[in-house]
């Protein structure tokens, strides 16, 4: 049914131009919730990219007079236990969250995705061996594994990204493998082989383009989880070292003032909550859109 409707969309797109073409790609729109969530993510990304140029105070400058002042007083979102501006720290802390989320997910996506595609395409001993190793990694308590990794490779931004990225390899490998298994059964792969296409060409031209979209959509949901994992590390004092602000670190510091100044922990918590929620929402909507298209193709 949808297939035919899409057909119809094309016939019209010649006359109606962009709007119909856009509707064909994005369907009947995602609704306002999607755009609000996407807008928030864009804001976070812009803060991370341009933190140094934004008109906020110095996140590391302690103004003792402002200690624990609430929001909308001397500071827009209040000040923390050392009198540092919370808004400035949020803006600069977003950099850590965004960098770790992007790097860790990219590592997981590239390494895990490649392994998964290869396992799904070649099957056999390689697949069985890989899946066994991944199951072992998945069965390991992730926090313990992470603590061990961080202790081993250090606490720099890159080291933490790599450590969290490593944890994501099994999940991505599984998603990529499952999608590859279904794509490989499609006749267009058989047709390509019949025409003499090499294995590499089939992987790059026929399999990869069909596996990458569901994997990318999953990436947004994974980023939300990465941000939470990073904050858990920060809470344990094992994330990027002070004084570099991070959201997790801010929540951890705010813990001491919960009785007197709840906003110190609450503001970064709400920020993180909104970001993770938006990532999940946007990721989920995109994924369902791709799934619908997949099932109709």
């Amino acid at each position: 049914m949808l297939n035919k409707l899409a057909d119809n969309g094309v016939v019209r797109s010649r006359a109606q131009g962009f709007s119909a073409a856009a509707r064909q790609v994005f369907g009947r729109g995602f609704g306002p919730g999607f755009w609000i969530a996407a807008g928030w993510l864009l804001l976070v990304a812009l803060c991370a990219a341009f933190a140094d140029w934004l008109p906020v105070r110095d996140p590391l400058d302690p103004v003792i007079a402002n200690r624990l002042n609430g929001p909308l007083t001397t500071n827009i979102l209040g000040a923390d236990g050392l009198g540092r501006d919370i808004l400035a720290r949020l803006v600069h802390g977003s950099r850590v969250s965004v960098v770790i989320a992007l790097t860790a997910v990219s590592i997981g996506m590239v390494v895990g995705g490649t392994l998964g595609i290869l396992a799904g395409y070649f099957r056999g001993h390689f697949e069985r061996g890989l899946m066994a190793v991944l199951d072992v990694i998945l069965a390991f308590p992730w926090l313990v594994l992470l603590l061990a990794l961080v202790a081993f490779i250090g606490q720099s931004l890159m080291a933490i990204s790599v450590a969290i990225g490593f944890l994501w390899i099994p999940a991505y490998a599984r998603v990529a493998r499952a999608n590859t298994l279904s794509v490989v059964q499609r006749e267009y792969v058989l047709a390509a082989r019949a025409m003499g296409a090499s294995t590499l060409r089939i992987l790059l031209r026929e399999v990869l383009p069909n596996v990458i979209l569901p994997v990318l959509a999953y990436g947004l949901v994974a980023m939300g989880l990465v941000i939470i994992v990073e904050s858990a590390l920060a809470f344990l004092g094992l994330s990027v070292e002070a004084p570099q602000p991070t959201w997790g670190g801010m929540i951890s510091e705010g813990k001491r003032h919960l009785a007197t100044a709840v906003h110190v922990a609450l503001v970064p918590s709400v920020t993180m909550f909104l970001t993770v929620l938006s990532l999940n929402y946007v990721g989920d909507r995109l994924r369902s859109r791709f799934d619908v298209r997949e099932s109709n193709l």
Binding site: N3, E187, Y188, A191, M195, N210
Partner: peptide, 20 residues
């Protein structure tokens, strides 16, 4: 040698890569 033989399949939609 295989290029001398070609195949067409039952499901024309799943025989074509949707992304190309």
């Amino acid at each position: 040698t295989r290029t001398g033989l070609q195949m067409i399949f039952q499901d024309p939609i799943s025989s074509l890569n949707p992304r190309r």
